[in-house]
């Protein structure tokens, strides 16, 4: 069953007086429990695609469905719910709230989901333990290394136990050893928890954990390969 389905997706931006065509009629299906790597040069539309998949942005044309629901037809309240419960985002630059400790950052999605304080703390500690940061829970992001921050971001993405993880160049700012441990973590999320992972990367090594590799160029899918 396809969790994510895109058909003829287009996205145009207005940059000053000129229009930028970020996506030009893109089709993509992502099945449940699948790891899909999106690759392509800068400006090929990878991040824009991720934002549309995660309901952070709306396409200009085409149809995007999430678990069968047309994202363009969903009202704002349902989109907020989808961002909070169905999708976990991991960003290249971590995007942690600097004023909050690692644990409070992990708790953040649960705060907006109105989960009780005690339950939140229990789940946050459990997730931090799972990503190997149980002893760094009280540290603020500026007291953590890049790898640690990304692991906090992964723990946060898992806070509400969403079925889909969208990781936008999660190893882009990390050394190869740390990057590998992050990739291993994402792989295990798919294998052990049955999560669907969509991964944007430039790195062939990162793409190697994916079941399928989709190559984009100029806002279109130009190649699709399946890892054996």
């Amino acid at each position: 069953m396809n969790v994510l389905q895109l058909k003829g997706i287009t996205k145009e931006y207005q940059l000053g007086k000129s229009a930028v065509h970020a996506l030009r009629g893109l089709d993509l299906d992502v099945g449940q429990g699948e790891i899909v790597a999106l690759m392509g040069p800068s400006g090929s539309g990878k991040s824009t695609l991720m934002h549309i998949l995660g309901a952070l942005d709306t396409p200009t044309g085409g149809t995007a469905t999430f678990e069968g629901h047309d994202l363009q037809q969903l009202e704002e309240r349902r989109l907020v719910e989808l961002r909070g419960h169905k999708v976990g985002f991991v960003f290249q630059t971590f995007h942690l709230v600097p004023t909050l400790s690692a644990q409070r950052n992990v708790e953040l999605p649960m705060v907006f989901s109105r989960i009780g304080k005690r339950e939140r703390a229990r789940r946050a500690q459990e997730l931090l333990k799972r990503v190997g940061l149980a002893d760094r829970a009280k540290h603020k992001p500026n007291e953590l290394s890049g790898g640690e921050r990304q692991r906090v971001a992964i723990a946060r993405a898992l806070a509400n136990d969403p079925p889909v993880i969208l990781a936008d160049e999660p190893t882009g700012n990390l050394d190869s050893e740390t990057g590998n441990s992050i990739l291993d973590l994402l792989r295990r999320l798919c294998e052990e928890d049955g999560k669907t992972v969509v991964l944007v990367t430039h790195d062939p090594e990162a793409a190697a954990i994916a079941h399928r590799i989709i190559r984009l160029r100029d806002g279109r899918v130009v190649e699709e390969t399946r890892n054996v």
Binding site: G54, L56, E76, R77, V80, E81, R83, G84, H85, F89, H95, L96, V97, P98, T99, L108, P109, F112, S113, R156, A159, N160
Partner: peptide, 16 residues
Amino acid sequence: TRDIGIMKAVGASNAN
């Protein structure tokens, strides 16, 4: 601004 974006990305509504 970016923190606001993060919060919205993890499920905060406009009202939140």
